[in-house]
Simulated scan of single mutants.
Amino acid sequence: MTLNLQDIPRIKTISKEDFIKHYFKPQKPVVIEHFIDDWPAYSKWNLDYIKAVAGDKIVPLYDDRPVNYKDGFNQAHAKMKMSDYIDLLKREPTKYRIFLWNILKEVPQLQTDFTFPDFGLRLMKGLPMLFFGGKDSYTFMHYDIDLANIFHFHFEGEKEIILFDQSQNKFLYKVPHALITREDIDFHNPDLKQWPALKHAKGFKTQLNHGEVLYIPEGYWHYMRYITPGFSMSLRAIARHPKHLGKALYNVFIMRNFDNLMRKLKGQKWIDWKNKQAIIRTSKYNS
């Protein structure tokens, strides 16, 4: 038995008005296949190009190790020159990923390769972020702290994506005081005997190819696995739904600080307690 996932709808392109009406207002995901064909990035952006323009940059790397109480929020696990990292990606599978790499700050010339698209939402202009990964590397199932609307543009190769909306929280083994599910769940091939509540979760799936953009609505959980080495760029627009905005403010100003305090006070016992609670709280919904 596998997860209950429906294919995310795919369209060739879309007007601002139709996007707002059919996807933003109902908060439904969509893949737009040919929205950025006129961007220079569409023809230029691949791993070799990034190596050429950013090869000398030192980049933070992350792998799939479980959260440790000693780790700071988004603290890198290693660092490497971008040229060496791209060589590694092309040579062999690696768990090392780059995420939240601000291209405006690091390589301003890349900004001339794209324009901020008009989807009818005000995009945060200072926060275009790049994400890189090698074959079979993945991000844990999580949602973003600010519950933003995300436009995820993929370059080079293929990427598997699974989404759930916030109404599915009770089935996902969500870790309390955190933005992740249990990290030992393999959403690519989940063991439904070990994680039976997942049978009740209803979500979405797709594979992104070069030049395609995925709209991820506010607060959606997302799991991403690189089928081949590649990279993506995310543009964001602030959450508009009052409930999501309130939750975003709570996450940023209360939840994150409380979690950091408890890590300092209780250490690994706090992480272990949270992981146990994820099972206890979800087990009510197994039947």
Score class of each variant (00 low, 15 high):
residue 219 G to E: 00
residue 137 S to T: 10
residue 152 H to T: 06
residue 144 D to E: 09
residue 136 D to Y: 13
residue 159 K to Y: 01
residue 175 V to E: 08
residue 202 K to Y: 03
residue 179 L to S: 05
residue 216 I to N: 06
residue 199 K to P: 01
residue 143 Y to H: 11
residue 203 G to T: 02
residue 160 E to A: 15
residue 205 K to T: 10
residue 224 M to D: 13
residue 182 R to Q: 14
residue 186 D to R: 02
residue 202 K to Q: 15
residue 155 F to N: 11
residue 217 P to I: 15
residue 179 L to C: 11
residue 227 I to E: 05
residue 157 G to S: 08
residue 208 L to F: 08
residue 172 L to K: 07
residue 194 Q to K: 10
residue 156 E to A: 13
residue 152 H to I: 06
residue 150 I to Y: 00
residue 150 I to F: 02
residue 152 H to V: 02
residue 206 T to H: 11
residue 146 D to G: 10
residue 210 H to Q: 08
residue 152 H to C: 04
residue 214 L to K: 03
residue 187 F to W: 08
residue 205 K to L: 02
residue 205 K to G: 09
residue 178 A to M: 13
residue 175 V to C: 05
residue 141 M to Y: 01
residue 182 R to K: 15
residue 208 L to M: 03
residue 139 T to D: 04
residue 164 F to H: 07
residue 149 N to Q: 11
residue 172 L to H: 13
residue 171 F to S: 01
residue 178 A to T: 04
residue 146 D to K: 14
residue 154 H to W: 00
residue 218 E to D: 06
residue 225 R to A: 06
residue 175 V to D: 06
residue 181 T to R: 00
residue 145 I to Q: 13
residue 153 F to E: 05
residue 177 H to S: 10
residue 141 M to T: 10
residue 169 N to M: 10
residue 162 I to Q: 02
residue 198 L to V: 04
residue 143 Y to K: 11
residue 219 G to P: 02
residue 143 Y to M: 03
residue 151 F to C: 05
residue 163 L to H: 03
residue 197 A to V: 06
residue 162 I to C: 00
residue 153 F to S: 04
residue 218 E to T: 14
residue 163 L to N: 05
residue 163 L to T: 09
residue 160 E to Y: 15
residue 188 H to N: 04
residue 180 I to M: 11
residue 174 K to F: 07
residue 199 K to T: 01
residue 197 A to L: 01
residue 215 Y to A: 06
residue 200 H to Y: 05
residue 225 R to K: 04
residue 226 Y to P: 07
residue 148 A to I: 00
residue 195 W to I: 15
residue 134 G to D: 05
residue 210 H to C: 07
residue 225 R to S: 10
residue 164 F to M: 09
residue 133 G to Q: 03
residue 136 D to F: 15
residue 142 H to W: 08
residue 153 F to G: 13
residue 139 T to W: 08
residue 227 I to S: 08
residue 134 G to F: 08
residue 163 L to A: 07
residue 188 H to E: 03
residue 224 M to I: 13
residue 191 D to Y: 11
residue 215 Y to N: 06
residue 218 E to A: 12
residue 213 V to K: 00
residue 150 I to A: 07
residue 204 F to E: 00
residue 173 Y to Q: 07
residue 223 Y to F: 14
residue 162 I to E: 02
residue 152 H to Q: 14
residue 200 H to L: 10
residue 228 T to I: 07
residue 216 I to A: 11
residue 210 H to T: 07
residue 208 L to D: 01
residue 170 K to D: 09
residue 132 F to K: 01
residue 200 H to D: 04
residue 134 G to Y: 09
residue 174 K to T: 12
residue 213 V to Y: 00
residue 147 L to M: 12
residue 214 L to F: 00
residue 160 E to V: 12
residue 169 N to K: 10
residue 138 Y to E: 03
residue 177 H to L: 09
residue 192 L to K: 05
residue 164 F to S: 03
residue 151 F to Y: 15
residue 186 D to F: 08
residue 179 L to F: 05
residue 191 D to M: 11
residue 226 Y to V: 05
residue 181 T to N: 12
residue 203 G to L: 11
residue 155 F to E: 08
residue 220 Y to W: 09
residue 163 L to S: 05
residue 187 F to K: 00
residue 187 F to M: 06
residue 180 I to R: 03
residue 155 F to L: 09
residue 204 F to S: 07
residue 199 K to A: 02
residue 190 P to K: 13
residue 139 T to I: 12
residue 187 F to S: 06
residue 197 A to Q: 04
residue 224 M to S: 15
residue 207 Q to I: 14
residue 177 H to N: 14
residue 140 F to Y: 14
residue 148 A to E: 03
residue 131 F to K: 01
